[in-house]
Design a protein around this nucleic acid. Structure first.
Lengths: 143, 143
DNA sequence: TTGCACCTTAGAACCATTCCAATTTGTTGA
DNA sequence: TCAACAAATTGGAATGGTTCTAAGGTGCAA
């Protein structure tokens, strides 16, 4: 079975879990995110998706991205006012924002660190998620 | 010397350091941020500032906020697509975003933790700043 | 095979922000 | 003191990302 087929089935499954349908648009949008993990904006996804599905509309791309976020297949990332970016990496990770290049890199986080971070919360604060963003420059490229 | 006067002088000093002038607009915008530290948007700042300076324009509020950020007197905060929020708290701190109320709380961070967090960065990544955002619900109000 | 809920689509509308050109204000040095 | 120049403010227009709306398509379920 090809990777694409496998992803499509995993997607169909997750969508079904939420009572939603799998559609060509949703499949292609998801494939595009998995294929090039450079935190694209909705516009960039739109451009990439069009080569496989020329009649798709921008509104649909927004809809699909929103759906994927709801189904926990994709994370929406916002830092620095500007377009939302999308990330199919579901492992716990931080983002490193390179101020020179504007590129965003994923940084894996040991679960031990996440616990440590959450432990600074005073009583009465119940965090469902933690997001960590680094800003600076990357002197060498990473994966 | 009143607090307001003291703040105004600190502001004038910081502005002068960058070769900028202190103006009534900049003073009032800064006062407004210091007075109610609830991470207001530019629009909210605009509304609050108008009571003291009825002829100020929204464009000026944006300009002043940008200036204050440049002078390191204020932090601009962006999470959740939506308007930028402004925060006069300069101590290292994280933000806790209460998903029920939409309110944002400051969480002080021990410098020891910041070091720990930064230590997860692989070689080649040089972080100038770290931002930490919690999301969840606050079962009791804090400060 | 008809009905109905879900999806997609194009374009209009929206909202936060930035840009622009025209004043106003402040500062400097003649 | 004043002229001249720079810095700052203003209102409105323009922009860019996103959401809304209304209309048309698609596919499962009785």
């Amino acid at each position: 079975m090809s990777t694409a087929t496998h992803n499509a089935e995993a997607l169909a499954q997750k969508l079904a879990d939420s009572g939603l349908r799998s559609t060509p648009q949703r499949e292609v949008v998801y494939e595009v995110l998995l294929k090039k993990r450079d935190h694209p904006t909705a516009d960039e996804v739109f451009a990439r998706v069009k080569s496989g599905l020329p009649t798709i509309s921008l509104a649909t791309v927004y809809n699909c991205l929103e759906t994927l976020v709801q189904c926990d297949l994709v994370r929406a990332v916002n830092f620095e006012r500007g377009p939302t970016r999308y990330c199919p990496n579901l492992r716990p990770h931080a983002h490193f924002h390179d101020e020179q290049t504007g590129k965003t890199h994923d940084i894996d986080l040991p679960s031990e660190l996440l616990e440590k971070v959450s432990s600074v919360l005073p009583a009465g604060y119940d965090a469902k998620s933690v997001e960590i963003i680094f800003r600076g420059k990357a002197t060498k490229a990473a994966h």
